[in-house]
């Protein structure tokens, strides 16, 4: 019994989240019989990983007390650069062999992820070396990345990705949607990194008390730089999934993901002031919110009202957290 109560105490956020998810699930199943169809869950398994990975990126930035407002810009720019590569640099040839297609695909993935790495490095340098506050630095770079995306595309979406790229976003492996598999691998890797490596532990320490971390001999600037690089790479992976699933890349795709990623991170128990956050929390939070929004879509709520619900949910979660903090 004591074991149960101590488990409940240390995992309070997780338990609370699971309860929220169950309530959402039951309410939606009750509200619409169509909610429980297999097709609905399968389509969620294709869409949710994008938001899930962007939210993990956001959580990592929040661990050090920062925020990354450029994630959506990075995601779009990565997808667009991959598209430009497919169309202009290494176009499809009629007699293309399988090897050619494979090299093309690999290079495009590398280009997209290096875009994320470079973008994240820029964020990290601005924040850790020039000491710009994360909000303004990533607000500016986000605008910059979106700007480059507009310049590259001239406005309209880039289309014409090869089938292999589409497979990343729409394919199935052994009956399981590929985006879901990618998300699971990423989530496990990041979870391991945060809890079992010195990098992860140091990040949490910096977020909890930056001054103490300096006195403990941690090189804060370098850790912060690394965390934004990681966040950038994750954002570019979300960009790959997004452009793969829709077979297009555009400068203003997924703009609503920014608010949702902040919401998912905060709902998942991440402390925006730093020091606390977990991949498990983010994963359950993204599940709850995707169930919620698909339920409302099935109930034919307009997208505007769904935006309202996301916002209201964010404020409600903040209120709940504040209430709990007061009780302590």
């Amino acid at each position: 019994m004591q074991k149960i109560t101590s488990f409940a105490k240390t995992h309070e956020t997780i338990i609370q989240l699971v309860i929220i998810t169950l309530i959402v699930f039951l309410a939606m199943s009750w509200a619409s019989p169509r909610f429980l169809r297999y097709y609905n869950f399968e389509s969620l398994a294709f869409i949710a990983p994008e938001l899930g990975i962007i939210s993990i990126a956001m959580m990592i930035a929040m661990l050090t007390g920062g925020i990354d407002l450029s994630v959506v810009g990075i995601a779009n720019l990565s997808g667009i650069l991959a598209g430009v590569f497919f169309l202009k640099v290494m176009p499809a040839t009629p007699d293309a062999s399988l090897a050619y297609a494979a090299i093309r695909l690999t290079l495009a993935v590398l280009i997209a992820m290096s875009t994320g790495l470079l973008a994240g490095t820029l964020n990290g340098l601005l924040i850790s070396r020039l000491k710009i506050t994360p909000i303004l630095a990533t607000l500016g770079t986000g605008q910059l990345f979106t700007g480059f995306a507009v310049v590259l595309t001239g406005g309209p979406a880039i289309v014409g990705f090869p089938p292999g790229w589409g497979f990343i976003g729409n394919g199935k492996l052994l009956g399981v949607p590929l985006p879901l598999l990618i998300f699971i691998v990423v989530a496990l890797l990041i979870a391991f990194m945060l809890s079992r490596t010195s990098f992860g532990v140091k990040l949490m320490l910096i977020g909890t008390n930056p001054k103490a971390a300096v006195f403990a001999g941690l090189r804060n600037a370098r850790m912060i730089l690394f965390s934004y690089m990681l966040s950038g790479v994750l954002a570019s992976m979300a960009g790959i999934l997004l452009s793969g699933r829709t077979n297009a890349a555009k400068s203003d795709y997924g703009t609503s993901y920014l608010l949702q990623a902040v919401l998912v991170a905060v709902l998942g128990g991440t402390n925006p002031a730093g020091g606390r956050g977990s991949v498990l929390g983010v994963t359950i939070a993204v599940t709850a919110l995707m169930l919620l929004s698909s339920g409302f879509q099935i109930l034919r709520f307009s997208n505007h009202l769904i935006d309202f619900i996301w916002g209201a949910f964010l404020i409600a979660v903040i209120a709940l957290n504040a209430y709990r903090a007061r009780g302590r």
Binding site: L258, L259, V262, L263, H304, L305, I306, D307, F308, I309, W310, G311, A312, L314, I315, I318
Partner: peptide, 11 residues
């Protein structure tokens, strides 16, 4: 961020 989404969504 939250209140902006609430107000625009409702409007």
């Amino acid at each position: 961020l939250g209140t902006a989404s609430i107000v625009r969504g409702l409007l």
